[in-house]
Amino acid sequence: MHTYELDEQTVFNSGHNACPGCGEALAVRYVLNTMGPNTIGVVPPSCIAIICGPQPYSSMRIPVYQTTLEASAASAAGISRALKRQGKHDVNVLAMAGDGGTYDIGFQALSGAAERNEDMVYVCLDNEGYMNTGAQKSSSTPYLAVTSSTPGGKPSDKKDITEIMAAHRIPYVATATVGYPDDLARKVAKARDMEGMRFIVVLTPCLDGWGVADDGAVRVSRLAVDTGFFPLYEVEDGERYTINHGPKGIPVERYLEQQKRYRHLDADQIKEIQTGVDHRWSLLQARAESMARPVVCD
């Protein structure tokens, strides 16, 4: 029997404003309770800001700075540098942004911070769209998924933020999801105990935006991994790949059929998505293998 053992500290509070069964609230729980109370949070406008609480209340028992949508990484970098200036080297700085604030609007600040290897943990809670404002598409929305701004299904592919961040050659990049809470908590703990820029993208099903049942966040999240749609892996220093959980031979249709945003798909489109998933999985495996080889100079 599989069981989870999480080493949680009490940072995230009950009484927050996430929807019932929210996948993102679960992710916030694992992230915050693993980071621990000795942490300063930075949150841009997003569902995370809603979950954090209506002012002057907070669901996070740590100091949290709610910054602008463009500036999560810049704000976190400023706080991190200021702490060091004060001689405080033992305080974690955690930026938690959505996919809009990471893939799109906050991207240049993020890329800049990564290039400077700023000392922070940056967690992107990726629900594949602007779910907080009515489920518009973001550059994280997957191919053919319906959003309020792509009513016929998104015509372009999901941006591969993991590889983009890995290409910055920062110390740590990882993917995680709430259906694998032990894997998620382990990655957060690992990132917390490292230095420099650490980036984790967490797939967090949005029940309303994706059209998933109230009790379905964990099931859907797990299917994303088990079908190979969202493999869980880590990249250290831009080249050391570790694949944690990949496809288990379950067709991607099992994942898609759980979500209303894919309800319009016909058999050919499902096949097309399956082909894309298979292709990306083989690329990931090849990359993991080739990157692991030592560099040989003539």
């Binding site: 009484g15 609480g53 002012q55 002057p56 209340y57």
Partner: peptide, 23 residues
């Protein structure tokens, strides 16, 4: 928030936790 006097703390600061809410 009732515990904090507005005169002492800027209103944009957090003064309480969400566990007072009855979700």
């Amino acid at each position: 928030p009732a515990a904090a006097s507005p005169g002492e703390v800027p209103t944009i600061w957090t003064t309480g936790w969400t566990d007072v809410f009855n979700t």
